[in-house]
Computed example of a mutant assay.
Amino acid sequence: MTTIYDRIKEISNKKGVSIDYVNDKAGLSNKAIYGWKKSTPKADNLQKVADVLHVSTDYLLGRTDEMNPAQSNNGLSGFDEEIMMAFDGKPIPDEDKEKLLEFARFLRSQRGK
């Protein structure tokens, strides 16, 4: 049986970030996610992790295999929200991430012309 922790680990690996990174970004206590191997998290903490990973809580709970069932199909929704980016398995520094986002916003604006 796949646990909540297993789902978090799986999606974190796909996004190229560590469990500790997700834990910190979600504002949880030190190593909280590791404790979910054997216990069930509070709903608000699970939502924080889902928000960081950009997946639904239903996905983390194993109720669905769709990571973002309610997400819009336009490919640009949530574009300006905080996103995680990685290259070669390592998180991209915030200053580089901002440069990449600026370029992506530029490309998006050019499409609209």
Results as ranks from 00 to 15, higher is better:
M1A: 14
M1T: 02
T2F: 15
T2H: 14
T2W: 14
T2G: 10
T3L: 09
T3H: 06
I4D: 04
Y5F: 15
Y5K: 07
R7L: 07
I8R: 02
I11W: 11
S12R: 02
N13E: 15
N13W: 13
K14D: 11
K14S: 08
G16A: 14
S18M: 03
S18V: 01
I19N: 07
I19F: 10
I19C: 13
D20V: 07
Y21G: 00
V22L: 07
N23L: 00
D24Y: 01
D24F: 03
D24A: 06
L28G: 06
S29N: 15
S29T: 15
K31V: 08
K31E: 03
K31Q: 08
K31P: 00
K31G: 03
I33G: 01
Y34D: 04
W36D: 02
W36M: 02
W36A: 07
K37T: 02
K38E: 13
K38V: 10
S39I: 05
T40Q: 13
K42S: 06
K42A: 12
A43G: 03
D44C: 00
D44F: 03
Q47A: 13
K48C: 04
K48N: 09
V49E: 02
A50T: 00
A50G: 07
A50E: 06
A50N: 08
V52Y: 02
T57G: 00
D58A: 11
D58L: 06
Y59E: 06
L60A: 08
G62C: 13
G62W: 09
R63D: 10
R63F: 13
D65A: 05
D65P: 00
E66G: 01
M67H: 06
M67I: 04
N68I: 01
P69I: 10
P69M: 13
P69A: 08
Q71T: 00
Q71K: 08
S72A: 10
S72F: 04
N73R: 15
N74F: 04
N74Q: 00
G75W: 14
S77I: 06
S77C: 03
G78V: 10
G78Y: 14
E81S: 15
E81Y: 11
E82S: 01
E82T: 00
I83T: 10
M84V: 11
M84C: 12
A86G: 00
A86L: 02
F87C: 07
F87L: 10
F87R: 06
D88L: 07
K90E: 05
K90G: 00
K90R: 05
P91Q: 07
I92S: 13
I92V: 15
P93D: 15
P93Y: 09
D94W: 12
D94G: 13
E95S: 11
D96H: 11
K97P: 06
K97G: 09
L100Q: 03
A104K: 11
R105N: 14
F106M: 14
F106P: 01
F106G: 04
L107F: 08
S109V: 08
Q110Y: 06
Q110F: 07
Q110W: 07
K113P: 09
K113C: 09
K113A: 15
